[in-house]
Write a protein that binds this DNA or RNA. Structure first.
Lengths: 197, 197
DNA sequence: ACAGTCGATTTAACACCGTTAACTTATGAC
DNA sequence: GTCATAAGTTAACGGTGTTAAATCGACTGT
């Protein structure tokens, strides 16, 4: 029996390899096609090795979801540094949300359990998601200093409009070009921000 | 071997039994827990019998989805008969949408591939869904007689806001009581309809 | 040099899944 | 009584997530 040679990799490299592979399969074939064995094949290991890095498939998905929210929160922070005007900030944050969903749809899917992606952990219990919503709520607050309850409500509305439009755009992308949906999205979010005044 | 006795049922009864069972498992345990074997057990048949009624699990889900859209379209028609004012009509249609998602969440999930529900057939190719969108577009048109392109756009926006708010309400239902979300939904849809003028 | 241990990795297995082919069994026709 | 047909079952295939057991290699102590 010959020893198969495998490029030596650090633990961290293998771990991120698993995540990257999962995402790339999801992007190509959809989340329902992502299996532990397929991931293991791609990283040239046997299936149980994946469990050395993640307790379960569920936890793997949860990690990818958290990674998504972390990425989003970093982008939001970038916007906050870039602009001072709260209106501009909220609008730009909205655009980041769109860009994210458009360029990394498989992550957006696992974040919200869309299109066959299914992660058991409730989204709202994710700390990284809490961080994201904190940023948006504060931005709205610096804009409309009202009670916490009102801010929560406005945030809920902002999120609904943004998420709803994005979801529908993805759903109808074969019928209605994404560029057209993007135009509507921009207009909708601009109006939402304007109407906050 | 004793002959197991099974209540005699017509073909139609068995078929609708399959559908009902699938929905009830989905409601109790989520769509990812729905399996052909579990359905077969519940209707007291062996698994292959299910394939006498549906070509595949996918087609079964598609049937449930269509059933959902048919139900929705009937409710919309009912609203049209009940009210004459286009504004009132659109608002009441929005409320029907909310009620439907609230009381039959498992159907709403399969209609939009949410929370582990996954049906391959694209929604927008479903005839029953086309019927539903036709009703809403006409209602908007009788209200704002603009070009077809504009109506399509307004319909897209209406759908986004409604669907987005419903989805988020379901997502956050353990954090934010549904009654509270409903209040926001009503206000949001009322404002949307008003702003159409 | 040899036995023993430890860690990394794989194989094998379990219980489930969707799906299909092959088999059984009961019923009615001639 | 024999045959055909229909209804329903069992058995099987290749897949899934997951875990226990087995393997294999390198290193250690004597």
């Amino acid at each position: 029996m010959e020893t198969i040679e495998r490029k030596p990799r650090s633990r961290e490299q293998t771990r991120s390899g698993i995540i990257t592979t999962a995402k790339s399969i999801a992007r190509r074939e959809g989340w329902q096609a992502v299996s532990i064995r397929k991931i293991a094949d791609a990283i040239e290991y046997s299936a149980p090795i994946v469990y050395e890095y993640f307790d379960s498939k569920d936890r793997l998905l949860d990690e990818i979801r958290s990674e998504g929210f972390r990425h989003l929160s970093q982008e939001y922070e970038r916007i906050l540094k870039l602009y001072r005007d709260p209106e501009k900030r909220l609008y730009e944050i909205s655009l980041v949300q769109w860009e994210f969903a458009r360029h990394q749809p498989e992550i957006y899917q696992v974040m919200y359990n869309l299109d066959g992606a299914y992660c058991t952990m409730p989204v709202y219990q994710s700390e990284t998601m809490q961080a994201v919503s904190q940023i948006v709520r504060q931005t709205i607050f610096s804009f409309i200093p009202k009670s916490e309850e009102s801010i929560k409500r406005l945030y809920f509305q902002w999120w609904s409009v943004s998420h709803g439009t994005i979801m529908l755009a993805m759903l109808l992308k074969d019928e209605q070009p994404l560029d057209q949906s993007e135009q509507i999205y921009r207009e909708t979010m601009r109006r939402f921000v304007r109407d906050l005044r």
